[in-house]
Design a protein around this nucleic acid. Structure first.
Lengths: 334, 334
DNA sequence: CTGTTAGCGCTTTCAT
DNA sequence: ATGAAAGCGCTAACAG
């Protein structure tokens, strides 16, 4: 008991006794048992973050934002990665819940079974915040960027430059940010009286419930080649994310075509690399770090509220960043 | 007790009772308490991975490799990220140890204070495996790529192409992979009777004990500009990693110089993007995924051994990947 | 086949 | 200023 008082710096302990305790503790490499503590206290001061693809800069930024807020408040973040399948995502939920984290921030792509499981989790009393992922629940906060508007703006930008034949590259999805961006693309076309054309839309097969991963360079490269093989290839491309855009750029250059003169390209995310490609990539910036911070704040508020709180929502605006991959004349264009 | 038997599928339980238990458990959203279980069992079937910079593809690959092995054996991986400071790294160690993970894989950059803390951890009985990080301890396994030889090979490749004036770009370090690569650079120069020149070596200041982060495009870009401003700029560059190399490429192109004719560039890591840059980047591949797998295997072996095991070491070979940033003629060169 | 006892290491409360 | 008792939820070992 005295040891407990010394370790937690709580209650009165004789200075000499404290010294002795600390000395002996150090000598025997004593370390308090967080399991026993958590068991007694009914909280672990620990938050879990479930994320799909750590390779994506998006993940890194989210983690940074979340951590920034959590560590400042004395919480520890445990990140669970699940890139292979929904099964692993569910396993991550189970693990975190088993180990009694105080809350779970979910930043994976939504899916039927994932959502179902999440709902059970919430009903068993675990505070949950959804980040950039469709999930509606009365007791779950939600933060995301406005992917729909971002997709719309990117496409409208191309249209305003005079393009009418605009392709879309990216894994087809039934959920999530990718779908929203695609919908933005469709809406922008329709708003400008351009009929979307099936053959201008390419990407992986519809495997949303199988692979939580992101669209890659490979998909961009392969997709672009498919588009360039058309009798009437597009004069502009909206790629679902920057990596896919880079793959597309690679394919375009390989055919000796010029960007943006022959084909203009827009990406999404504004990864650090986007300003260093040649030509620098026009893209849509999303405030990832900010999303992480807000998710963490939502979570802490939820935990520290004694009673179940109503849902909080926050959708942050994206911002079109125009570079030389759509508008010629910059130094970096070639 | 009967509930415990049902949940763990151990011992004999009457089928009817089992049914009833499961039904009620489901109804009340029962979930076993991992804290209590861990407290009793003295193990949590959980491994911690401490990593510095998740933004780096290296991290993603390590995680994939580690996870692959751990999940197959029923362990859960908790990733702790610490990008800001050694202080955060130490906090991550503390947290993981407090929560009684069964072992800790450390993949941050080595540092004085980090190492000291790690030593205490090991002495308190936590199994530790070091990945790609200098750390010598009798009871700690070690796995890494051969960064020294990789750096040597990259530099030797440039020398064999006829270059004598070869620059190095990357944060200066006193520990870790970056230092090894730099040493490889120096050794290769000396082996070919070229005297290293101070002004050809650029990078951030020596802040190894402060920022566990990696060398970035910004450093590459700024460093390259510094080198190009010299009266006699280098004809070839070895960059500490691919991102730094990309920054350098960006700077070179911006001056209207050609790669590899005016300046040849070699990176390190072979990130997925390296084959998609223009020109495609010559770089040194390191088997990151493999390192993750081996680290996890070492860890499990160590955990499952009843007695303290002697140190195991494994240094994996790197492989030079020659592309058009050093040898002209490829399609992607421009 | 099921229940009882004890104890994992901690903290809250109450006594000294 | 320190200690004793009780209990957090679980499981190993032993009854029944």
């Amino acid at each position: 008991m005295t040891v407990s008082r010394v370790m937690n710096q709580t209650g009165y302990v004789h200075p000499a006794t404290r010294e002795k305790v600390l000395r002996v503790a150090n000598e025997f490499n004593y370390r308090r048992n967080g399991l026993a503590r958590g068991l007694k206290m009914q909280c672990t001061e620990t938050i879990g973050l479930v994320i799909g693809d750590v390779a994506n800069p998006f993940a890194a930024e989210v983690i940074r934002g979340v951590r920034e807020v959590l560590t400042a408040r004395g919480y520890t973040l445990f990140v669970c990665v699940c890139e292979q399948s929904i099964k692993e995502e569910v396993a991550a939920f189970e693990s975190l819940a088993d180990h009694r984290v105080d809350g779970i921030i979910v930043a994976t792509r939504a899916s039927q079974s994932g959502n179902a499981h999440l709902k059970k989790l919430i009903e068993s009393g675990v505070p949950v915040v959804a980040l950039g992922r469709d999930f509606a629940h009365r007791h779950t906060d939600f933060v995301s960027a406005d992917h729909l508007k971002g997709g719309y703006d990117a496409t409208a930008h191309l249209i305003q430059l005079g393009h009418k034949h605009i392709g879309f590259i990216g894994t087809k999805q039934t959920y999530g940010a990718g779908l929203k961006r695609f919908q933005g693309y469709l809406e922008a076309l329709r708003a400008h009286r351009i009929t979307p054309q099936e053959q201008l839309i390419v990407g992986g097969q519809n495997d949303a419930d199988q692979t939580p991963g992101y669209s890659t360079e490979e998909i961009g490269y392969a997709g672009m080649n498919r588009l360039l093989d058309l009798r009437k290839p597009p004069t502009a491309i909206f790629a679902r994310n920057d990596f896919t855009a880079l793959g597309a750029i690679s394919a375009i250059k390989q055919r000796g075509l010029c960007i943006p003169q022959d084909v203009a390209v827009v990406g999404f995310d504004d990864v650090p690399l986007a300003s260093h490609t040649s030509p620098p990539l026009t893209t849509v910036f999303q405030p990832t770090h900010e999303q992480g911070k807000i998710a963490a704040e939502f979570m802490l508020r939820r935990i520290e509220a004694l009673e179940p709180m109503p849902r909080a929502e926050r959708v942050l605006p994206c911002r079109l960043v125009i570079r030389e991959s759509t508008v010629a004349g910059g130094i970096g264009a070639n």
